[in-house]
Amino acid sequence: MTLRRIAKRLLVNGEEHEVSFLPHRTLLEVLREDMALTGTKHGCELGECGTCTVLLDGEPVLSCLVLARECEGREIETVEGLAGASGPHPLQHRFAELNAAQCGYCTPGMLMTAMSVLRKTPAPDRETLRRELAGNLCRCTGYLKIYEAIEMAAEDLQDG
């Protein structure tokens, strides 16, 4: 079988990109290797860690288990799109302030899941956070700081 690349239009962080890649590539591989968006991390590759989490039409998914070709016409959001013109997103600001990132490898995925949670639930309680972040492992086990950072960011966002 010939390895012919396919061309697809991918909408990443609000910008449309024409990308060509091998037909069996995952979204994670295309983001990192074909689009140089290396903020999304490559972890277990089998759906067991959550560090490759990106948002697809607003919902968190594992980019290592989604074929890139199936993302055409859908809205992809990665950690690179979080910061705005005025600087880091409140989530990023609070993560940095509280040292919620220890080794930092899970952080991009944590931030993206947290982003989707705060859009749906502007003031999440701890139980909601535990449930919604259950798919993001932190091997440094620094969950407490992560929850606190998200809760503080939630207040920042509500205060405008």
Binding site: G47, G50, P60, V61, L62, R131, E132, A134, G135
Partner: peptide
């Protein structure tokens, strides 16, 4: 089942 990310897909 699984996790939110898996359940979404």
């Amino acid at each position: 089942a699984a996790t939110p990310q898996i359940r979404n897909v």
